[in-house]
């Protein structure tokens, strides 16, 4: 049976058009001048039990709005939305029993209480029986060694420790679906890996459906089999990660600070790269911030090392950074037809 069924789901917000200055503020008080913002615009998708779905998109794409509708906080403007056969907004409490939610930036543990007391309170709220409770904590202890943190108050935990505890808390009542919002934001590499393997293990052993929203494409690559990309309230892509993986994996952006930079430098760089690597080199150049030049390279076509070596020998480069492709660039590439 389908766990989450969404058909033509939309959400629009009415926002007051604000005017400038004091006069404008007074006018706004009595104004009926609203504009409608279509945060989610007719999306359809089905999620099966046990799936790990990466729900991604740039800022303001409509991700949180969708999640808020799925968790029963927001009422959809139009369309069908069912989780486990029920409408979330009309059954908030019942739905909350089968859901878990984790926010990267905010803890849901009781701030002043020792972690274990938060778990015990959750045990009462969700009516988890003692046996299951012990089993669950035992499993977590085995996976990430949580016991040492039990007696600490939530506010004294580091961000990474807190995240581990928040994830534990969200799985405590064995929910059917867990929403993870930026679970690895601000964490260092080793704890990121720990959290990712924990999520995979929970999904594997309990068949918990996981919906992951993140800006970290590494999370998506490590966890998801299926990916849904949303932009401007519409679904751009919904399908196997493998197809999109090429996009994330192959592209790297070389950030350069070129000495004595001028408009001409950019043109020269463009010409000479084309001259050296041929017309189908898969390299795009853009001027981003004041003095940084972005050279985005499709490694499937041209090795990054070659481009870097060429630029270093032919231009005076003051500083260089290599970055993974950003969410915004992935979306741009999809618009440009990268997945067609």
């Amino acid at each position: 049976m389908t766990l989450i069924h969404i058909q033509g789901l939309s959400k629009h917000f009415k926002i007051l058009n604000r005017h400038e200055g004091l006069k404008g503020a007074v006018r706004d008080l009595f104004s009926g001048d609203y504009r409608t913002v279509q945060a989610v615009d007719g999306i359809s998708l089905d999620i099966e039990p046990g799936e790990i779905v990466g729900y991604i998109g740039p800022n303001g794409a409509g991700k949180s709005t969708t999640i808020k509708m799925m968790t029963g906080i927001l009422k959809p403007s139009a369309g069908v939305l069912q989780v486990n056969g029920l409408v979330p907004y009309d059954n908030r409490i019942r739905q909350a029993m089968i859901m878990g939610v984790v926010f990267g930036q905010r803890t849901q543990l009781w701030w002043d209480l020792p972690v274990i007391e938060s778990f015990k309170i959750l045990k009462e709220i969700y009516k988890v029986d003692q046996k299951m409770f012990d089993e669950h904590l035992g499993m977590f202890h085995e996976l990430v060694g949580l016991k040492a943190l039990y007696s600490q108050q939530a506010r004294t935990l580091s961000l990474g420790q807190r995240m581990l505890c928040d994830i534990t808390a969200s799985f405590l009542h064995n929910p059917q679906v867990v929403f993870l919002d930026e679970p690895t934001i601000g964490l260092d590499v080793s704890i990121k890996a720990k959290i990712r393997s924990l999520i995979l293990e929970l999904n594997r052993t309990r068949n918990t459906t996981i919906i992951l929203t993140t800006h970290d494409l590494g999370d998506v690559e490590a966890l998801c089999r299926r990916i849904i990309i949303i932009d401007k309230g519409k679904i751009l892509y919904d399908g196997d990660i493998k197809k999109v993986n090429a996009l994330f994996g192959a592209y790297r952006t070389l950030k350069l600070q070129i000495k004595d930079y001028s408009e001409a430098t950019l043109a020269a760089l463009q010409d000479r790269l084309t001259g050296t690597f041929g017309a189908g080199h898969g390299i795009t150049i853009a001027q981003t911030e004041d003095c940084w030049t972005d050279v985005t390279i499709d490694q499937a076509r041209t090795p990054l090392a070659d481009v870097l070596a060429f630029i270093m020998t032919n231009f005076t480069v003051e500083d260089v950074r290599i970055v993974e492709i950003s969410m915004e660039n992935v979306v741009r590439k999809i618009y440009d037809g990268a997945l067609k």
Binding site: G72, R92, R94, Q108
Partner: peptide
């Protein structure tokens, strides 16, 4: 701060949850 959103996620009365903190 937007932190209020967390009170919707527990299977409890929201006023109870909030005031009990």
């Amino acid at each position: 701060s937007g932190e209020f959103v967390k009170y919707y996620f527990r299977p409890m009365n929201i006023m109870f949850y909030f005031m009990s903190e």
